[in-house]
Design a protein around this nucleic acid. Structure first.
Lengths: 221, 221
DNA sequence: TTTTATATCACTAAATTTAGTGATATAAAT
DNA sequence: ATTTATATCACTAAATTTAGTGATATAAAA
């Protein structure tokens, strides 16, 4: 009898975990060894339990998926990670793959895909869901639209650190001048960042920026 | 043999649907008649298929859960709806319950909860997951954290209908001129309302207005 | 090595928002 | 009958945002 593929799940929604477990139970090849509702202690737990494949969400409270991937790298520990996200913008895809993820599935994917993804990744290959493959191909051929995301969602990860900093201050009702004073830069620079954010996030005005910041919990309240 | 409880699911994440189906399959009482990845045509489909319980996400592209509930009401068609959301703020809970939802589950809930929720709601009672019950209780006893860490403590009720109308349009990225055209009033009037709102809500700029609107679920993100 | 991404700043011009004051009309409340 | 709340509009002036273009420096990636 062959060994089962040892799986670990990480997602902040318990119901999704329960659903995944139910789906994966239908396949005798798999054994779900455990799961986590956040990224905290995830790396150590995966290392301890001799996990073959980790299926992990990006957007988690506390420590997010990106940080977990970085921790794997810094600790010199490698694991077959399948990233599992609601977002599918090309920058996020690129980032997680560069950080060593072996697969990328959107939550829009069907349950069979995850089974295929696990077996593929377990056998040393990489796996991307259809929309992700298309994104990668379009990016390769240089045909991709700026900041496209088929589901209309852009992840906060596609924002640079400086932009994020400015976005937060904007959302705290700072004016351009106040931001420039707080960050010791010119108001011209602040407004350039604002313009770039408006373009990048595909909104019309500052109002749209604030809604984005709130939606993604970039600020409190 | 008793009839099975006829279920319909609505969520924009296919994997969550697949997971729910797998979870629900373990119970002989249920039959998942169908599912939808958006709110479009949901009301008609549910009406056609003689559904007992609809399990529905709020955040869906196209037509969201709030709109679906409103459509149920306007078409005079009632259905046992269990709302199924990542969010659990009291305003949203209140809104969906006032719109006639019979249950409210957060996605942080476990799979067993949904089974309990379905049977409860099917038997004519209401069902709320633990964190939701706590929120409702705290709100009832007046012990809930007041909507704003600031000292303003302004409730949406202190806003007039007209101001609310304008606040919503502002939050949808309408400019003053666009609002004036939408409501057939002068831009002067729009700006007066904006000024009064800024004073009344004790914020500094339009950004503060938008945050207030989002916090109190005056608009759908 | 060349390209790309990021962060910085300048300049212009138009549009919009903020912040006042003040006025009118209507309906509801005291 | 008088006050209060609401909704409407006008006018002015300053501040801010939006929308372009264009430029420089640096670091990272291809």
């Amino acid at each position: 009898m062959t060994e089962k593929i040892r799986l670990f799940l990480a997602d902040d929604h318990q119901i999704l975990i329960d659903g995944l477990v139910a789906v994966l139970k239908t396949n005798k090849l798999f054994e779900v060894v455990g799961y986590s509702l956040s990224g905290e202690n995830l790396v150590d737990e995966v290392a301890d339990k001799n996990i073959d494949v980790l299926i992990m969400d990006i957007n988690m409270p506390g420590k997010d998926g990106i940080e977990v991937l970085k921790e794997f790298n810094s600790k010199g520990f490698s694991c077959n990670v399948i990233v599992f996200s609601s977002f599918d913008d090309i920058k996020l895809i690129k980032e997680v793959l560069q950080l060593g993820a072996k697969g990328y599935l959107t939550k829009q994917s069907a349950g069979e895909n995850i089974i295929e993804a696990i077996t593929t990744v377990y056998n040393g290959e990489e796996y991307y869901s259809k929309s992700v493959r298309e994104k990668i191909f379009l990016s390769f051929t240089g045909k991709e639209k700026e900041n496209d995301a088929t589901n209309g969602q852009i992840s906060p990860e596609s924002i640079t650190d400086r932009e994020l900093e400015i976005l937060k201050l904007i959302s705290l009702e700072y004016s351009g001048k106040e931001i420039s004073e707080a960050l010791f830069i010119s108001t011209n620079t602040v407004e350039t960042h604002r313009k770039n954010l408006i373009k990048k996030l595909n909104v019309k005005t500052t109002v749209g920026l604030v809604k984005f910041a709130l939606k993604h919990n970039l600020i409190n309240q």
